Amino acid sequence: MKMKTHKIAAIPADGIGPEVIDAGTQVLGALSDHLGTLSFDITRFAWGSDHYKAHGVMMPEDGLDQLKSFDAIYFGAVGAPDVPDHITLWGLRLPICQGFDQYANVRPTRIIPGVNTPLKDVGVGDLDWVIVRENSEGEYSGNGGRTHKGLPEEVGTEVSIFTRVGVTRIMRFAFAMAQSRPRKLLTVVTKSNAQRFGMVMWDEIAAEVAQEFPDVTWDKMLVDAMTVRMTLDPQSLDTIVATNLHADILSDLAGALAGSLGVAPTANIDPEGRFPSMFEPIHGSAFDIAGNGIANPVATFWTAAQMLDHLGEGTASAHLMAAVDRVCAAGILTPDVGGSATTQEVTDAVIKAIRGRNSLG
């Protein structure tokens, strides 16, 4: 069988980003060596807050052009305590998401063996969600401004933008995602009782798109009530679609309910395949533990599995996640999920599991 090479742009960026991306690339290399059917040509880009402090920008002006030729982007984390958050986010991550029209943000959540969950009486297999987040408009469209800055009459506006094109395409993506899963169940998150224009249109388009997927059972949930349902009745949920802001918040709750943000992955997808999609762990830069060697790499491994699925490497993805499950079930865990292992120890154990070795310690 001919080996397929995938060109990957790695952007470790800030905080624990370099540590977890290094762990992820080690695991990808082990997969390549073990399976013998795929390889990775990884190019690293030293963009982020250090680049900003040296050059005044988070990435070069031609950054998107440099990334266009890659098959996928493997992203670490962005954010630094000495650089304002709106600069780090709007200077690197969001320009890539918006510039490459990665309008579908996909955040799976499940309880990994060996990882304790705060949910009482919920175990492995009882919580298995995919949150689909609209990733290009809504509350994070960047539309708005400030006037009379510093004066008593200062005004700041943040305009949520909902377009028929944007809402329709994310609804179709979410319904198709639900259709592909065994339960064929979708929950549409809304807040149309209080937001009576954009969110009412969101609800109406959801009902229209539902007609195209008669085999998908769907319901609608106000976002505040959704937090209660996720906590008290998690088994009633499967696939979830929400706006940019609502899904951002709910997916952090989902990660916490599964045990830790350190095990939560993200894919920023251009479903049409016009541009490279971007894959990143959900946990952020976590500067409080950066450099201590204890960052949880599991989210980054799961993110790599999402990337492999996107690249058509389903066998490699399944092999990777089976190795991750085996390692976590063996109790080889970082401190955020109750273990004492280092980032490298977890990585080494996953590599051993990929290679099929019986002893993981």
Rank of each mutant, 00 (worst) to 15 (best):
G145P: 12
M171N: 04
V165N: 12
T163N: 13
V124Y: 01
K149I: 13
T147C: 07
I131M: 08
R93F: 13
T109K: 01
V115P: 06
E61N: 04
W90M: 07
F70G: 00
D65G: 15
F173I: 04
C97F: 08
F162M: 14
L127Y: 12
R181G: 05
R169L: 06
D62H: 10
P108A: 06
G114A: 03
L94D: 05
L89I: 13
T88K: 11
D85H: 02
T117I: 09
I161V: 15
D82W: 06
L127A: 12
F173L: 02
A77F: 10
R164L: 02
V78S: 02
F70T: 07
E154M: 10
Q98I: 11
F173V: 05
V132R: 03
K120L: 14
S136W: 05
I87H: 09
V130S: 00
T117F: 05
R164F: 01
G76D: 03
Q102L: 14
R181S: 05
N116V: 15
S160Y: 11
A104Y: 01
F100Q: 01
R164E: 15
I131V: 08
V165R: 15
A174T: 04
N143H: 09
N135M: 09
E61D: 14
N135C: 09
A77L: 13
L119M: 02
A80F: 10
G144H: 14
K149S: 14
D62N: 13
D101T: 01
D62G: 05
N143S: 10
A176D: 13
L119I: 15
T157E: 14
M177S: 00
D126W: 05
P152M: 01
Q98D: 00
G79P: 03
S180F: 02
G125C: 11
G79Y: 02
A174S: 09
V132I: 15
I112F: 07
K149F: 08
S160D: 13
D128L: 04
Q102M: 15
V124A: 06
P113D: 02
W90Q: 02
G76V: 09
E153Q: 13
G76T: 11
F70S: 01
F173Q: 06
A80C: 08
D85N: 09
G145I: 08
V155E: 15
N116Q: 15
V167H: 00
V78R: 06
G166S: 03
G145F: 11
A77V: 12
W129A: 00
L67F: 07
I170M: 09
A77E: 02
V106C: 07
A176N: 06
N116E: 14
A72T: 04
L64D: 02
P108W: 01
E137P: 08
A176P: 00
I73F: 06
A77G: 11
A80P: 09
T157I: 13
L92Y: 10
